[in-house]
Nucleic acid binder design. Structure first.
Lengths: 190, 190
DNA sequence: AGTGATATACACCGATCGGTTTCCTTTCGT
DNA sequence: ACGAAAGGAAACCGATCGGTGTATATCACT
């Protein structure tokens, strides 16, 4: 019994779309997606209006897991600084995986040049939420300019994930953490 | 007389490949490339072995201009810090253009998941050279850890260009410059 | 057992992909 | 003025693209 056997065809499609579009890019064919999901093309078009819609749905479905991964395990006892650093610690740990190819949402935004694409809209929303999370932490931590600090943090986040995903940088020596620490200190965040 | 009329067919192809693959992504068809260049497909395959080879050549041809754009206009009188900040000033100024879509070399690395692709190799080389340039400046500027600082700077560079290119961030208020300044200060670079 | 919904397999659509070939015109050296 | 060579237009190749139509099989429910 394969691991996908207990999932509905729709969920298997979303799973395959997320996995293959992340590994091979958004230009992956629907034929390959359906083969991977073990679902006929005909069924796919009953669940989704188009390939674009399925891609957007697959990105959206992964948002809760993505958020949970970046959230601090014990947010109550942790300081704002610890919660911010946790995000980059997770990024650094994830980046060592052989099949890490960078932040999937940033990749989608880069690959789909069209900002009106439904998947681009989902990706942009995720990025805005991350920035807003950082901003709230910066405010709680007493940063001098919370908005600026938050934008700096997403800059580092996306730069680190893109470079690690592209294979031109390694984060496992704490590069992101060190960079963020310097920025937190400079912003006067406790 | 169009602006391309005085260029050789080969140069027109390289120009069209650079422009269209930057605007539409590397998946742009050779039919469109040849139409844009005003060159027959047959001629194109006499100049280049494949679409991949032409793409790599088009990226490579733009390297000198890219370098010149980031180089300080008066490198002798400028300090290492000024030379570094000049790079990010140029990035911020370029990013306001309506047809700015991020660093083309990073985009190619993200879009072509295959690191063995000839265009990926060119792009990786460009990124390595930028990091090396930063490292040399960091050393000259007396940074505590020149290698670390250089990696932080390319992190910010790629993060800023990717986010600005994706349309999720604006750099025209000096975001990159402010971030880099904080990192230079933290590294003890004069 | 019968029925309607759901899923599959598979041929098919026009369009485009990267790449090749054929034919014809233009250009250039002599 | 002539012949070779280069270049352009377009047909053509097999493959794949996103998407549909059709006929068959499987399933739950009554």
């Amino acid at each position: 019994m394969a691991s996908t056997d207990k999932l509905s065809p729709r969920d298997r499609l979303l799973d395959a779309a997320a996995r293959l579009s992340y590994r091979d890019g958004v230009s992956v064919g629907i034929e390959a997606l359906c083969r991977e999901a073990g679902v006929s093309k005909r069924s796919m078009y009953q669940f989704f209006d188009s390939k674009d819609a399925m891609l957007a749905a697959s990105l959206e479905q992964r948002v809760p897991g993505y958020d949970a991964q970046l959230a601090h395990p014990d947010p109550r006892s942790a300081s704002p600084r610890e919660r911010v650093l946790h995000v980059f610690g997770r990024l650094e740990r994830a980046s060592v995986s052989a099949d890490y190819h960078g932040c999937p949402y940033l990749a989608v935004l880069v690959e789909l040049k069209n900002p009106e694409h439904p998947a681009s809209i989902v990706a942009r929303t995720v990025k805005e939420r991350l920035a807003e999370t950082f901003r709230a932490e910066a405010e709680r931590g007493g940063a001098r300019d919370p908005e600026l600090l938050a934008r700096q943090l997403v800059l580092v986040f996306d730069g680190a994930s893109a470079r690690a995903g592209a294979g031109v940088e390694r984060l496992d020596d704490g590069l992101a953490t060190k960079t963020v620490t310097a920025l937190l200190d400079a912003a006067g965040m406790e």
